[in-house]
Nucleic acid binder design. Sequence first.
DNA 1: CTGAAAGCGCTTACAG
DNA 2: CTGAAAGCGCTTACAG
Lengths: 327, 327
Amino acid sequence: MTTIRDVAKKAGVSVATVSRYLNGNGYVSKDAEKAVEAAVKELDYEINQVARSLNTKKSNLIGLILPDITNPFFPELARAVEDVALTYGYTVILCNSDENPEKERNYTEQLKKKYIGGFIVISNQLDAPHYTDIKLPIVALDRAINESVPIVSSNNREGAALGTRALLDRGCRNILFLRGPEELNPANDRYEGFMAEIDGADAHFSVLTGPFHFEESEELVESFLKAHPETDGIFASSDVSAAGALKAAHKLGIDVPEDLQIIGFDGISMGEMLSPGLTTVAQDIYEMGAVAARMLIKLIENQPLEERFHEVPVKLIVRGTTRSVRT
Amino acid sequence: MTTIRDVAKKAGVSVATVSRYLNGNGYVSKDAEKAVEAAVKELDYEINQVARSLNTKKSNLIGLILPDITNPFFPELARAVEDVALTYGYTVILCNSDENPEKERNYTEQLKKKYIGGFIVISNQLDAPHYTDIKLPIVALDRAINESVPIVSSNNREGAALGTRALLDRGCRNILFLRGPEELNPANDRYEGFMAEIDGADAHFSVLTGPFHFEESEELVESFLKAHPETDGIFASSDVSAAGALKAAHKLGIDVPEDLQIIGFDGISMGEMLSPGLTTVAQDIYEMGAVAARMLIKLIENQPLEERFHEVPVKLIVRGTTRSVRT
DNA sequence: CTGAAAGCGCTTACAG
DNA sequence: CTGAAAGCGCTTACAG
């Protein structure tokens, strides 16, 4: 392994000068610069990040804390984070938290010992001490808690209004809203968006609360549909629960979209694989991850943030679970 | 930040003794041990991994190199790797390669500078110099290349035979096999398994080669089905392409499973969300990732490996895209 | 069994 | 603009 010492020797300067050259700080004369540049190239020198970290107490590691990469919403987010991290020379550590504060704390503690640069976190525990006391840059994704940490999220409220309107415009008059977990801010925002839009509309509606889970959604919807056969529209606040609703409808022999229209929320790729393809309010998941990563890196590098709250627009993707608009 | 020096002072011993105690190597007297233990507890001391790494030229980082976390096969694998890594005190770095050798090389190079412990890699490039010359433990997943690197994979051949037999047993006599990319070993093994089983069976068959991609599979199957309406069974060598086949069938108004039965391969969770639910040859994806992680950690810690080639069994999960067995 | 000392490969005041 | 030197927080022969 060639070290900064080897480079210094070959270039005929001190290691301090090489270090200054490498870091682009401090003064380095043109001559020295050239000599070092040549030596670096000739020796194929690459800096030892560990040694550097020990001095600077920083590393180019960033931590991505999310509930479970197995949840179809997260892989695309992780991909985006990794892509931009790579661009800026950072490396990402994957941390599945299972929404468990103990696991989250364990990660933040362990990684601080590695002088990790900062965290992107998707969690409901953002006000827990291991985050508030962390003294490291962090950016929240998807789930806002308070003003103190920068956040990027979708416009969930507007998205829900969009989906609701879509159902209404397509003639639905007995709508079931599948509401997500009450401890999730995005789910609550979607609920509010739905309520705001349905309010005053010429339609009946019901709300069912449940997790963003396929089987449970399927069962929930199946029994609801049995009890309320007049239901002609379902707005699920996640694609996975929409898939559950669709499956329930199929099981009951209900024609989608003729007799029942379904709209999901998220825009995960599974949506198009269903039959019929799932109409959904799509988040720009990749964009969310990319923006969050860029924000975090700015924070790490002490650059100013233009905004501490970034909202990514949402759009309706119309596929087979809805009919054409009635005029 | 409290350092080993603080602990030494408080315990009234030298830093060398504290270090020995911490690493459990070298002799430490009972008395010294107690004193250090107490000091560590009292000061809430935790070792600085970066400083340690600089000395040992090792870290408890492991790299997971995979094509794209966005491909539904990989998240569960990543989850398993992370789970066992955590158990052993390791941390995983996520690397999306896009099957691009340049990106892979870049990761292995960059991470070596961080004294990464080793890699778990899913790649077709295992014989590229950046792997063969790496001088670091690596374990291959899913795709074997040669004897030199330990590998864990599914019994793809047997799995394919299993799926083929399932179609035959259920009365299929005109079978389409959706073969995956020819550069993928697992895909080839599945092809061989299919051929071995179909050979001599009282059935016609065709083979279509294509990527494990939803839309392309859908298009491929749609035109095939138009040209060959007598097709009564499709065995796709991935769940995603099976989903494409199912969608094509729906589009053409073909009754699945009455007139056409479909079996996939992989066992990803999307399978159950389809309607009807996808019958599939399921790999134990989590187990594969877990075994690979355990193997890698053994390698990193210089423990003997019982086996350099681990094959994880595969099983048929029967859902709605197949009928009951004809007797 | 234990400690002083050198060393891992960098960075950063400081003096010149 | 540059170099000598101390230091980041550990580990590890080596001598005792």
